[in-house]
Design a protein around this nucleic acid. Sequence first.
RNA 1: GCCCCCAUCGUCUAGAGGCCCAGGACACCGGCCUUUCAAGCCGGCAACAGCGAUUCGAAUUCGCUUGGGGGCGCCA
Length: 487
Amino acid sequence: MKNHVRVRYAPSPTGYPHVGNIRTALFNWLFARHHGGSFIVRIEDTDVARGVEGAVEAILDGLKWLGMDWDEGPGVGGSYGPYYQSQRLDKYRASAERLIAQGNAYYCYCSPERLEQMRAEQIRRKQPPGYDRRCRDLSQSEIAGCRLENKNPVVRFKFPTEGKTTFTDMVRGEVTFENARIDDFVLMKSDGYPTYHLASVVDDHLMEISHVLRAEEWLSSAPRHLQLYQALGFEPPRFAHLPMLLGTDRSKLSKRHGAVSITEYKEQGYLPEAMVNFLALLGWSLDDKTEIMSRQELIENFSLERVSKTAAIFNREKLEWMNGVYIRKLSPEDFIKRATPFLEEGLPEEVPLSDDYVRRIMPLIQERARTLAEIPGLTDFFFTKKLEYETELLVGKKMDRESAGRALSLSLEKLKPLEPFDENSLEALLRPLAMELGLKTGQLFGTLRVAVTGRTVAPPLFQTMAVLGKERCLGRIREAITSLNRV
RNA sequence: GCCCCCAUCGUCUAGAGGCCCAGGACACCGGCCUUUCAAGCCGGCAACAGCGAUUCGAAUUCGCUUGGGGGCGCCA
């Protein structure tokens, strides 16, 4: 398998790019890159009814955002195209016809209504639902009769009724199914489109896919696929069924668990490299301690042997932590670059962002941000003209309005002539001032912090004041004094 | 109901018979640092689902039970 690794990510454009699917894509991508193989994207748009406008773009954008480049597929072409199943209908049709000719498939004229009734009855009698094979062995005259009633039959696969289907899954080992339990599933729908089963088998063969890495929900379909490969005379790929991603309640990850579209994570200010690292660790691990790994390290170390069998719960808290780790690792320049769109988006009013001002603010919050989206909330006081806060916040522990007012007034006087208005001189001035006022440094600084930022939690005071500049600081202190005097 | 898969701290996981009275990380709780917050550092809490069997010895092997998940569509 050294040089012939060809894997695919085959999403169907029926909705947003789900993180579970993206995780599957990532494992495929890592596997391909690790082995120097090819990563192929194929769009499985065979469900005309459920197709969603813009879904393909969203999916591809998600891959691009995370840096998963594909060697063949939409936009890049390749010699196994087309890469949209809707453009490969002739191939599926040909295979279906061959299977019919070989006696491995047959037309089924049963109406959806009948099938539904049959299923309901089976369930009522506590039997496993499944096609009863009514059309499997129709005589010529019966077929003629059916044709009159139903002009658009489906094609079903004649699944073996005895024996077993066994295969070796690369993560789960040997898995065996009893053929008798599996019914004659549909290959071609009445609208002329193939079902997933037929289309994926035909395409995986035609595109010379060597390994199929997909989520565990497909495990029970594997015997169908294996039997199809056999009937078509194709050599099957190797299968690896990856552990599922679950929500916090242990059920299949879905919308009600919060953000499930990769797009949302981008919008919420997660870094793609953090996302990739985090997703890689959901069902795979390097060893007993390594967690922070670059894309390159992931590629170098990824292997199916280390993929776990157990479903994993998507743990937002850990992702947040990891995102913080990656934010802190960013160079100041890079941080500013990535933060800017969020600042522009998140700061509503006036604020023409001055590059220089932003450049001086950002270092103050880089190690405090866990996502890019929280940056506006962390820095808005740098931009707001008028601070809004409870006057009482100015009064620190064991202080009263009077002492707070006195502290601010004296600070104001001392600050007026201060030059330069930078971190060091501010500290040199303010520390002794606390003693002079008979306050603890924490009390003075706390009061000033509120006066100058409007909040009790902010970046370090002196740096913050220096960045705000003398004019803003003095103005805000004056306003604080005024509001203390009011009442 | 039937079939398949899975089972270590709340969560992600390490562990492929003795190195494990189970290691790391997130979260949580203390402490240190400190002008708040964050970061950092130190420490703590916390798990082998149960029962049998194999073995000198089992989280690791086997069986059963229980629990969880997935599948059973003219959806993928």
